[in-house]
Structures are given as structure tokens and as C-alpha cells.
Amino acid sequence: MRAYKPKDDVQKKPYYTDRFWVAPQVPKYDVETDEVFAKDLAALKEKFEILEAYIQVEQMVVYINPEDNFEVIKFFKEELSYDQLSELSAIDWLAKRGEFEIFYQLLSMNKRKRVRVKMYIKEDQAIESVEKLFRSADWSEREMYDMFGVKVNNHPFMKRILMPYDWQGFPLRKSYPLQGDEFAQWYEVDKIYGKEARDIIGPELRDTARIDRYDSERFARLGHEVPRGAEVKDDDPINPQEYQEEGGVFLIKKLKKESSVVIDDPQR
């Protein structure tokens, strides 16, 4: 029987992991260890419910309720002077806990601090757009939708950004194979020629190192061609390319054989 492979996570898996191996942790520090962050967090706690907060690699990480996201980011921007939204994206935890993790990476220039605001949402749960606060969220949220299928409410132009508009599936989900699903593999053929052309055109050649020895359209195999579509056998002769000089240069019309000399010894 074939080994069972889960469908919800088709990412590459390590082929060997020691039985007793325990992964170490990147240390998390209490927010109180940093004055600036402690003050920010205290101000935040007065207004919102904070699920978890710690400092990891010099940046504060704050977990909030997904319903608060707009208000929290607004609070960060207007009250705590975090003036840039550097990054915004999602992490796929659907296989493990059926949720997406959304993170907002914020930067305060006068405090020289960076904060990551995080939250968990269910697969079909929509979040509020923060595009009204930071214009950079316009494209980030589009990218997040494009890659993960996370829905964003009140976004001015919620279309795919990197993939084509008519794409199906969300490429950065763990359930999406690296080589693409069936839709992805036949996308161009289906779109340009229609589904019925799949058999005629055939699948895309993905092995870039593949050399088709008997394909007459390849310049790399000169001398080994057979006509296209011909049956190929193992004992096919090599057809070396013939040069016209071997049979004499036919452009010399007035050659007098009796007065010309044939040089047998090229070292002469």
C-alpha cells in the first residue's frame, strides 16, 4: 500500500528527523524589559484586549482579537506614533489548527522601534482593511488575498495582484503543490486553445535539462536527427552532417584535372 500523504499540507517534508530531537526556541522576553514597549503596551491594554505580548529579536509581538484590527492599527498610528506599515501578510495554519495568522509589521521612526501585531482568523473569516490608515496596505492586502484567499472588507479594489485575474486557487497555501495544481499546469493551453487541445499539445516540459535526442528541431543534436514523428530505434545510424567540399567544390567550373596537382601529403 502506498504511504498516506495528507492533502492539506503538500509542502516538502524533511526526510529524516531524529526521534529524540527537540527544537530549540528563539528566546521570548517579557515586555517589561523594554521601557518604550512597556509604555506602548500599557496604553494599548487600556483600550483593547491583548491576548499575548512578548519581545522576540528586539521587536514586540502583540496578539489581538481580529475584530479589533482596524482600531488597534489606528491606535498604533495616531496615539503611539507608529508611522509606517512595513509589511502585512498571512501564515497558513489551516492544516494544524484551521486558521490563518495575520501579521502587521509596524515601524515607529521617532522611537526607532518595530512592532508586529498578530491575530488568528478562521478560514472564511474576513478582516477589515487598514487601507484608510496606510495606503501601503492597498497592495499588501491584495497580495494577501491573491496568495492565501484571505478576504478583506472595505478594500477599494480587491483583485488579484500577482496572479492573473482568472486564476483559481491560492498559491501560498500549504495545500497548493509547488508544481501547481491541474488548473495551473494547463492554464495557458486551456485559455488559448481550449481543453480539447490538451492531448494534442501535451503537458509542459518542466525538466529544463531534458534533451530529446531525436528531435530534429533541436540545434544541439545536429547529426543525430530523424524525421519528426518517425519511429525511433536503438540502432539508428548517426547521420553526420555532410559538407559539400567533400564531394568537390562545385562552383569551380573550369578545373583542368590534368594540370592540377592532388596533394596527398598535407605536411608537404
Binding site: 529524516y16 530531537w21 530549540p24 522576540q56 509589511e87 509589521q105
Partner: peptide, 22 residues
Amino acid sequence: QGMRPPVGEVYVPTESPKGELG
């Protein structure tokens, strides 16, 4: 097999010629 970094997350910005590369 490749190295196995600890469990955790990190965001690191650097100043590339174009701007903040994180």
C-alpha cells in the same frame, strides 16, 4: 538535511540600495 533553526520568528530590515529590504 539542512540546518534547523530554533522555533520562532524574525523580521529583519536592511537598507538595500532601493530601500528597506526586509
